[in-house]
Every structure is written in structure tokens, then in C-alpha cells.
Amino acid sequence: MAKLSKPAKIYLILVFAILYTPIFYLIFYSFNSGGTMSSFEGFTLEHYGAVFNDTRLLIILMNTVIIALLSSLISTAIGVLGAIGIVFLRNRKTRNAVLSLNTILIVSPDVIIGASFLILFTMIGVKLGFASVLISHIAFSIPIVVIMVLPKLQEMSGSLIDAATDLGASKRDILTRVIIPYIKPGIFAGFFLALTYSLDDFAVTFFVTGNGFSTLSIEIYSMARAGITLTINALSALIFVVTLGLVLGYYFFTQRAGQSPGTGGAKV
């Protein structure tokens, strides 16, 4: 391949600089002893201390983690079973219809998901708060898990199942001892993706959270609307590290699952 010309290199460096400047700008000022994001006065860790001493913030952090773990576990279970069901649908038309229904929540804008879930919860009488947020997160994570698991299932040879049947395995055995082990990398990738989407979500949660319950992104939003607090900077540095860890974990599993990388959630 031809080597990059100089202008091309400069252009790429510029794009990378623009992409990363805001992130490092945030992290840099999290160590600022002055209270602003404009003049750096001295190095301090007090804003990190503020994060860990704020009980309210820690409770919100715990809520966020609990919601993320629970919703990704439950959505992975439902999604994996759903994907297996889709693969075994014999009728091509039904299968395509189910697949289209599956993708609706992936392509719909968050505002629409949030607004329609708000109507739904009000109609069926789910109280807005922990339950409504958890259910919403499970709901928007299921199709992602299905998408991640399907390719693995499709590449699995049918003769594996035939062999197991011939050797006297029950349906339950086939599921737990043949299918699930085979698609494990896809399941892990789906779980990780569900986890990051749940942690990252703002818009859907914003609609269904009600008054008493709050997750980290809701809290950051109300803090940011009030103005600049360097506690947010410290928080974002911590979130950056955790996100990086999750992304690397996700790549590790998708590399093993043999799938192409994808972008994160553009949550708007």
C-alpha cells in the first residue's frame, strides 16, 4: 500500500486531536484545586475525595451498577432463548418478520422509546422508579443480545444437534450441553454490550425515572445543567477508566466470537 502523504498524516492527527481533546480536558481539570475549568491552579485529589464522600452520589452509583448488572443478566437470558427460537423457526417469512420486530428498538431514537415506555408504564400502572428503569433497560437490551448471538447460532452445524439427538440427549441436554457452550462467546459479547448500553443510557431513563430514583447519567445531567462542578470531572475520569476496561473486555470477547467491532451508543 502507498505510504500516507504528509497532508494526510496531518489531517489524521488533527482528527484524533479533536476527538480526544475534550476527554483529556475534562480529566485534566479534575485535578485542579481551583474551582473552574479555565485556569489550573494546583494539583489536588479533593474532587475524587468529594465523589467518594458523597453518600448520595455513591447510592446513585450503586443504583446504576445494580440496574446495569440485573438488566444485562435478564436481557441476556431472554435474548439468548429468543435467538435460539428465531434460528429454529422453519417458516422464512415468520423468521424475517420476527427479525424486523427485533431491530425496531435498535433503530428507534431514544426519545421515542422513552416516551412510548412512559405511556406504557402509566397505562399498565407500573410505578415510575427502580422497576420502570430496570424494565426499560431490559427491554432495550434484548434485541442487542439477539443480534450478537444470532451469527454464532447460524454458523453452528445442524449435525451437532442431530448427533446429540441420536445419542439420546433430551431437549434440555441439547440446549445446555451443546448449543449454549457453542455460542458462549456470542453470549458474553451480548452481555457486555447490554452492560455498556445500560450504563451509558440517559434518554430512555430520563423519561421513565420519575422523581425519587436517579442513575448516574441523570445525576450528571442535572449537575451539568446547574453549571460547572469539578466533581463531574472527577466522576468522568473514573467513568472513562471503567468504560475503557469494558470496551477492552468487549473487544476481547468479540474477537473470540469473530465479529466485527461496532460503535458505542450514540445516546441522544
Binding site: 482528527v15 440517559f202 447519567s217 450528571i220 451539568a224 468504560t243 458505542g264 445516546k267 441522544v268
Partner: peptide
């Protein structure tokens, strides 16, 4: 490396620009 910033929460990126 191009994709990683897309995984950072949108709110934090918007917040950074409030400062910038």
C-alpha cells in the same frame, strides 16, 4: 481509537464543551 470516544457517555462530552 476512533471508536473509543463514541463509548464515552454523551453527557460528559457535552459537559466538556460547556467548559471549552
Amino acid at each position: 481509537l476512533i471508536i473509543i470516544p463514541s463509548w464515552i457517555n454523551l453527557l460528559l462530552k457535552a459537559y466538556a464543551f460547556i467548559g471549552i
